[in-house]
Design a protein around this nucleic acid. Structure first.
Lengths: 217, 217
DNA sequence: GAAGTTCTCAATCGATTGATGGATACAGGG
DNA sequence: CCCTGTATCCATCAATCGATTGAGAACTTC
């Protein structure tokens, strides 16, 4: 199956070095051709429309439009589009959303060339390619309940180190109510106190690490 | 200054894609040549001895031997060696250690090609190149005291969500002692409770995020 | 051996936290 | 309309936490 068809790949990745690395790796592979690149979400959609790639490699963390949003929008107009999600950190909550949005596979940036190439071929052939470890974690997460918006607000404040009193004042509710929300979210996260809730929230990417240094808008 | 001297660069980076990207970017630049690559700390030292590069690009998070250790060991035998630290996340506590160990510059992986090239040239010319934002943060950190080993043990347990009683039992000391250590480390971290201590520890890279999923050996 | 660190422990006390039970509102489905 | 589920809110109370003070033992460093 030498010259069956060249797989046309679009690479969406904001880190210049990583994007260049992907292109350099892929362009020496037989049967794969990088036909476009994008460094942010908006450009990604433009490039997709222009080139209509077979397979799109996409980073999740990007300026302007997140990877998940890009996948959702593109699949609105091109449902058969095939995406492989790239991510640095595998605790990422967004992976789960991306796969729900229709991504077919998932790769860590520490992957080997063989991983990359075989995954691209598999996805182009219509297969999905989720590592067992991720599949299991996804299954676990399916069973767990989603946090309500209010619970999310409270969790965000907990991660930022606010006390119940401060959270109550910030959200303009009573301290007792804050405690109720905390109690609920502790149960949903499967933890027993606020410190565990904070680390779990960071680890799972529910509250992004980047938000910590900022003085909360 | 066209053909003054070709700068010989060694690239130490465990992520295959990133390494490939750096090499691809640098090899098209006039006056810079990548003369070696390494994917882990031990190999890094071997490659350094073999090629004696002018400038070494080095990632901090690596298997076998950390970037900081590599810098320290190489500078033991080659004090004039020049390092540029690469890192993904700029909250990294290790940056500070790397610069103390003798790194001359620091680059985020989201940098542009111009950043990369000009930094390599600057460092090769003997200059240092620390972004103002990092310099300021370093200055701040200089004033703060280091945690003692025991305080670090306790902080690690806090991040893992253990209660004082559990920490006491785990470290085989009394709960009172645990409280003493917590009191000290709260002061040194500049925070007021354990939840803030946990998020600060993660944010600054004092306790690595990867250690969270594991059931604590 | 004097000085400095670190680690250890204790006791007290006010503040914070988390568990529990319960109230209200509001949405479909039957 | 009633029932069920869900999200929001509040109060009480015991357990935990953090601040504070003081002090002895082990280990460096000079």
């Amino acid at each position: 199956m030498a010259a069956e068809e060249t797989i046309r790949v679009l690479v969406i990745e904001d880190h210049h070095v990583v994007r260049q690395g992907l292109v350099a790796l892929l362009n020496v592979v037989d049967g794969i051709e990088v036909i476009g690149e994008a460094a942010d979400g908006v450009d990604a959609i433009t490039q997709f429309r222009k080139h209509q790639p077979h397979v799109t490699l996409i980073d999740l963390r990007m300026p302007r439009l997140s990877g998940v949003e890009v996948i959702q929008r593109i699949r609105m107009e091109t449902p058969q589009a095939r995406f492989i999600v790239l991510t640095t950190y595998d605790g990422d909550e967004d992976i789960y959303r991306a796969l729900q949005a229709g991504a077919r596979a998932y790769l860590l940036k520490g992957m080997t060339t063989e991983d990359l190439v075989s995954t691209i071929r598999a996805v182009h052939a219509g297969k999905s390619h989720i590592p067992p470890a991720i599949a299991q974690r996804l299954a676990e997460r399916m069973g767990t309940e989603e946090l309500t918006p209010r619970e999310f607000d409270v969790l965000e404040q907990i991660v930022h180190g606010r006390s119940n009193k401060e959270i109550a004042s910030f959200l303009d509710i009573s301290e007792a109510t804050v405690k109720t929300h905390i109690n609920s979210l502790l149960g949903k996260l499967g933890v027993t106190d606020r410190t565990q809730a904070a680390t779990a929230a960071i680890q799972r990417g529910i509250v992004p690490l980047e938000s910590l240094r900022k003085p909360k808008q």
